[in-house]
């Protein structure tokens, strides 16, 4: 569990530093590298990646949304089928979560000897 949480934290920190400079798809790549580095097994990798992605994307979106008083998210929410700003934060978080989880999972499977 501790390893999973460490991986989550690593994704959070690594993403916060790297995501602004790199393309969005650096997120699954980062998660894969961290899973590999932390020698995570597939399930903890999925969980750690999911939490890391969720907190990274959802958390940052929530901060930006709050600083903006929700002006933009209300408008973009309309483009996304009429969802409200808070739900859009959640959607953003889940999107990050899914791709970080997929990346971490793939990374965990890349190691020949783990997870067995």
């Amino acid at each position: 569990m501790q390893k999973t949480l460490s991986a989550t934290l690593a994704i959070l920190v690594g993403g916060a530093v790297g995501q602004a400079l790199l393309a969005w798809w650096s997120l699954p790549v980062l998660a894969a590298l961290i899973a590999l580095l932390f020698r995570l097994r597939p399930r903890p990798a999925l969980l750690g990646g999911f939490l890391g992605g969720l907190l990274l994307w959802g958390g940052y979106a929530a901060i930006l949304n709050a600083q903006n008083n929700g002006i933009l998210s209300a408008k973009i929410g309309v483009l996304f089928g009429g969802i409200g700003g808070p739900l859009l934060v959640l959607v953003t978080g889940l999107f990050g979560a899914v791709f970080a989880a997929l990346g971490a999972w793939t990374g965990s499977l890349a190691r020949g000897d783990s997870g067995s």
């Binding site: 393309a23 969005w24 798809w25 997120l27 994307w57 949304n65 903006n68 998210s73």
Partner: peptide, 21 residues
């Protein structure tokens, strides 16, 4: 492009201007 657009680091969230500072 969904990933790029939703990413709070590069996508539309970056256009959410601060209203407090």
């Amino acid at each position: 492009a969904t990933g790029q657009f939703l990413s709070p680091f590069t996508g539309f969230w970056q256009n959410a201007e601060r209203t407090d500072q």
